[in-house]
Simulated assay, not measured.
Amino acid sequence: MAITLSTIAPTPTTRAYLSPANNFPGSCTTSSYNLTLSPTATVYKTVLASSSHARRSVSAAVSSSTGTADSSIGIGEETGSLLERVEVFDLNGNSILISDLWKDRKAVVAFARHFGCVLCRKRADMLAAKKDRMDASGVALVLIGPGSGDQARAFSEQTGFKGEVYADPSYASYKALSFVSGVTTTFTPLAALKIIEAYMEGYRQDWGLSFEKDTRTRGGWQQGGIIVAGPGISNISYIHKDKEAGDDPNVEEILKACCS
C-alpha cells in the first residue's frame, strides 16, 4: 500500500509548563532549578493518503522541551519507511519489527543512549514511575537501547525496569529517527550537572556495559529520545529528540500525549 505524506502550514500553539521542585528530588538543592519554563511547542498537521483509504489528517505533537530542532517537523515519509524495516530483539533474542511494538496498541517508546548510561537509568525510572497511569490508559511502556541482547538483559536485570526492553544492535532505529550523535552532544555543562545530580540520587553508570564493543566502537556518543506511537504503524503522535545527554522532556507532556 503506497502512503504519501504532506505537511500543512504549522499552527503555533503556546504551552507553558511550571515544573515542580521535585523534578530534582533528593539531595539536589540548586534552587535555580525549582522553576522551569519550557519554550513554545508547535503542532503540525500531517496529511496521510493511501491507495486504499481516504485522506485523513493527523496531529503530530512535538516536544516543547529543549530537544533538537529537527523534531519540530515530526516524521516524514522517508522516516516512516525506514522504521517499517527496522528490526529489534527482545530479551530472548527473538527479532521483531519495531513498528509491531505499536501496530496494535499505543506505546511510549524511550530510546536510551546505551544500556550502561547513568542518565538513561534515571530516565527509565522517571517513566516507570508513571506506568500505572499508562496501564490505566492501555499504553505500553517500552525501552530500546543500542547494543546487544546481552546488554539489554543486563540492563533489565540491574534496573528492574517495569516495561519491555529491546536491543537495536544496528542502531537502525536511531538512524531512521535522525537522533543526534557526537562528542559535543555528550560532554556539555548541563549534561555534566545532570550526571552529578544522578549520582547524588544514587544512580550509577555501568562501566562494564559502557565499554563493551557494541558501545565502545561507536564512542558512546549516541543520543536518544522518546516517542508516543500507535495504534497503527505510521501513527507517531509525539516525538522528542535529545539535543544532548540527559535532555529529558517534561514527563507530564508525555502523559498528555499518551494518556489523555
Rank of each mutant, 00 (worst) to 15 (best):
L5G: 00
P12N: 11
R15P: 08
N23F: 06
S32L: 10
Y33C: 04
T36K: 10
S50Q: 05
V58W: 05
V58T: 05
S63F: 07
G67V: 10
G67F: 08
T68R: 15
G76H: 11
T79R: 00
L83A: 12
E84I: 11
E84Y: 10
L97K: 15
I98M: 01
I98N: 09
S99Q: 09
V109K: 03
A110T: 07
A110W: 03
F115N: 04
G116H: 06
C117Y: 01
C117A: 11
V118N: 08
R121F: 00
A129M: 10
S137G: 11
L141M: 09
V142R: 02
L143F: 01
L143P: 00
D150Q: 09
Q151T: 03
A152I: 01
R153E: 02
E157H: 02
K162Y: 02
K162W: 05
E164S: 12
E164M: 06
V165P: 05
P169N: 13
S170H: 07
S173H: 11
S173W: 02
Y174S: 14
L177Y: 00
T184D: 03
T185I: 02
T188A: 14
L190K: 11
A192N: 06
A198C: 06
G208A: 09
L209Y: 01
F211M: 15
E212D: 12
R216N: 14
G225Y: 04
G225V: 02
I236Q: 01
S237Y: 05
A245H: 09
A245E: 12
G246F: 02
E252A: 05
